[in-house]
């Protein structure tokens, strides 16, 4: 028994690879997409697809045919006789003689399902992005929160094991902040925190970390920065912060800093922060509004 290609419920077509012209097709293509009998013979294959689909065929479908001799489950947009785009799924093979054998069928429902999947995925991506930002950010100041800063600082510390990079850790604490809150109220205190954050964010580079570490305490980690350069950076911070007005006075901060790694010593984040905190304590002890570096003798003083 001979099979009649015209009775199959899917489009069958033969085209020439080099000439890119349609040689033969079956009744499904005429009926499903509204083409008159034989009207497509010798037409360029590009006439059958949308512009985007033609680009897609040229840059994906043909190279794949050349490489593998076949393509399966490709989804593109066919142009019907009325020039309406119809999603189709295509399987094709390339023969030794340079003929392409196409099997295709309209895939309207499948396309809708894909579209829904894509929309859902995009929505999920957007939501995840929003949530990631929310979970990493301090609500009041917009800086990184303590959790995110801890994560990123740990990543940086890990990195120093592979590369020869020096990190400088800076802890800042606003001087007499309680007095600001008591005198001007918490709302005013919040405004000061926001102004302070803007100064910090505009002074660091994109590769640095800047975070709200606690109530009126901030952490800055300067990437690839020596302690001397970090000291100059802190001086610049003092200058900028001293321009923020509170009532008739101006804002001051105390800063403690330390660098890592020193003398090939391996420390974890807690230990490094502890060093910066000791230096910060030293700055407060010495009358505030200044920067102190962590030194080993700070330990000796205490003992």
């Amino acid at each position: 028994m001979e099979m009649d290609p015209h009775i199959f419920p899917c489009g069958l077509m033969v085209s020439d690879f080099q000439e890119q012209k349609i040689l033969q097709f079956n009744a499904y293509i005429e009926n499903e997409f509204g083409f008159a009998k034989d009207s497509l013979i010798d037409q360029p294959i590009t006439a059958l697809f949308t512009k985007a689909s033609v680009l897609f065929l040229e840059h994906y479908f043909y190279p794949m045919l050349l490489q593998d001799g076949k393509v399966s489950e490709l989804q593109v947009m066919l142009l019907s006789a009325k020039k309406e785009p119809v999603p189709v799924t295509i399987n094709a093979t390339l023969s030794q003689q340079g003929k392409i054998y196409w099997a295709l069928f309209s895939a309207i429902n499948r396309d809708q399902l894909y579209q829904e999947l894509i929309n859902t995925r995009d929505k999920l991506e957007d939501k995840t992005k929003a949530l990631t930002i929310t979970s990493a950010t301090d609500e009041l100041t917009g800086l990184l929160n303590r959790r995110e800063a801890t994560k990123r600082a740990n990543d940086m510390i890990q990195q120093t094991k592979r590369t020869n990079v020096m990190l400088s850790f800076i802890l800042l604490d606003i001087d007499y902040f309680k007095r600001v809150n008591d005198t001007f109220g918490h709302q005013e205190g919040d405004k000061i925190l926001i102004k302070m954050s803007k100064v910090l964010a505009s002074t660091v580079r994109s590769c640095d970390i800047v975070a709200r570490w606690g109530g009126e305490e901030f952490l800055v980690v300067l990437y690839n920065t020596s302690i001397d350069k970090a000291h100059i950076f802190c001086q610049r911070l003092h200058d900028k912060i001293n321009q923020i007005a509170i009532g008739r006075d101006t804002l001051h901060v105390s800063i403690g800093m330390t660098s890592y790694p020193i003398n090939n010593q391996t420390l974890n984040l807690d230990e490094i922060i502890w060093q910066a905190d000791e230096a910060l304590y030293d700055a407060k002890e010495r009358g505030r509004n200044q920067t102190r570096r962590f030194k080993e003798d700070l330990l000796l003083d205490k003992r």
């Binding site: 689909s53 897609f56 894909y114």
Partner: peptide, 8 residues
């Protein structure tokens, strides 16, 4: 449409 085809 091109980006959509890449997606699909």
């Amino acid at each position: 449409e091109l980006v959509n085809l890449m997606d699909k």
